[in-house]
Write a protein that binds this DNA or RNA. Structure first.
Lengths: 252, 252
DNA sequence: GACTCGCTGCGTACGTTGTATCTGAATAGA
DNA sequence: TCTATTCAGATACAACGTACGCAGCGAGTC
């Protein structure tokens, strides 16, 4: 029987129990396919795991299993687990839909902020990714920044102010999206499905804290608020404030 | 010889090697002090470790060692590692200096934003704390929110808008502080001590990306910017924009 | 064609982690 | 004095990331 190239016998010299494995047992074992992966496949598999079971479920072993590969085989493609995270973030950034060309800087910034929020909510594990992996300088991230900065050209702003505008909108969008996502996860973890339940079924600790009467302003705000469940409303109002402020202070 | 109350022999039935420990060896061992801890001590020790060696160095075992306690002894005070993180965050929030009473909502919000940034920069591990632990509802967190919300009273804003103002400023401050901290850590990890070095000694990947000419707007912004190393300048400019926008849109 | 050598993919194994479980000493009660 | 109860924390375990080293192939040499 001709040997298949590209494959070979799985031949560990010893089993997990330390007992040497006989030649015959080795011949009996199915040949293990040589792993040929791409970074895209790794990223996609990791994202599937994270979307389904959370970021903590993304382990080298689990990822390898999903890819039908040996755990150590992944290290041919990444230097360590951190790079898996980088791949995940880059893939998610790359999968974002292209923004339609914006007529004004304001539209461009608004669209970018909304996209940041959408992506964060679609992949809630993003906020748990170690910051250094999230901030990694990848081509797709560069491209995203480039597009936003390009939208700020021709407004008479110098480089410092262009950067400041971009950073300010980004800071607001990431901060707001992170807070919203965290709250969603907190509610899910507690088995609540909406903010309303959160306030009526109020967690014991929260109820106790409120009942002390030490937080009147907070309590009043919570009970009187009508848009409290409407995170979109709050995000958009805040965003318009930020954009207004930029327009106002920078005269654009 | 009278026995000392509150102490007892350390009496493991077997050593780490699995060998049973003889009575005589047990009698020889120094008595282990019974651990009496407080949550404050645990938080303080964990913060010391994290400040010195990063959040990853905060392990149950390491923490217990610093407290001269057995690893499992900590579980009398916390339900798991997550609660250690909650204690750390709460302690850091509680250690923030009281803000001087502010004459205007604007001053109050500005002071709060600056404090958020200062705290984040002082304890850079904060951005790595799992979001759910960072957002945990603790008395001190409530108190901080209460003070900010109280500053928004008497401006003719309804509850929704008071909450929106607070959330918007908070989102900007946390987002900006997180970005800044991440960049600092990235530079430290690469051995650069300033943003200037970062741009001149430009990491190989970044230089390559720039040299492709695919990111002209970004490149122009980086080379022309003069305040690029001045994170405080950018933070403050952005913050004033946010405050301007709130004032402008909400008419306060 | 036979033999050697270097390289590489990945199987094995190690050290470390968080924490469930269980032992056995200390204490209270009869 | 003896038994029941409690609970601190020692032990043990499963799962993790990944260093290490070896088997096997292909290239290079005679």
């Amino acid at each position: 029987m001709a040997e298949q190239t590209g494959r070979r016998e799985a031949g560990p010299a010893a089993g997990p129990d330390g007992e040497p494995v006989s030649l015959w047992e080795r011949l009996e074992r199915p040949p293990v396919a040589r792993t040929v992966l791409t970074h895209e496949q790794i990223a996609a598999a990791a994202i599937e795991i994270a979307d389904a079971d959370g970021l903590a479920a993304v382990t080298i072993r689990g990822l390898a299993a999903r890819l039908d590969a040996a755990p150590m085989a992944l290290y041919r493609y990444v230097k360590g687990k951190d790079e898996v995270f980088e791949l995940m973030v880059d893939a998610v950034v790359g999968a974002e839909p292209d923004l339609p060309p914006a007529a004004t800087w304001r539209e461009a910034m608004r669209a970018q902020a909304h996209r940041t929020r959408d992506t964060t909510l679609a992949h809630r594990w993003l906020i748990q990714v170690p910051p250094q992996a999230r901030a990694a300088l990848t081509p797709r991230r560069f491209a995203a920044i480039e597009r936003s900065l390009a939208a700020l050209d021709g407004l008479g702003l110098d480089a410092d102010h262009r950067m400041a505008v971009f950073d300010t909108v980004t800071a607001y969008a990431t901060g707001a999206a992170a807070t919203e996502t965290t709250m969603l996860q907190l509610m899910e973890g507690a088995g609540w499905s909406s903010g309303h339940e959160l306030r009526t079924a109020l967690g014991p600790q929260m109820r106790w804290l409120m009942s002390t009467g030490r937080y009147p302003a907070y309590q009043r705000t919570l009970t009187e608020s009508r848009h409290i469940d409407d995170a979109s409303w709050r995000f958009e109002l805040g965003l318009e404030c930020v954009l207004d402020g930029i327009a106002c202070r920078l005269g654009i």
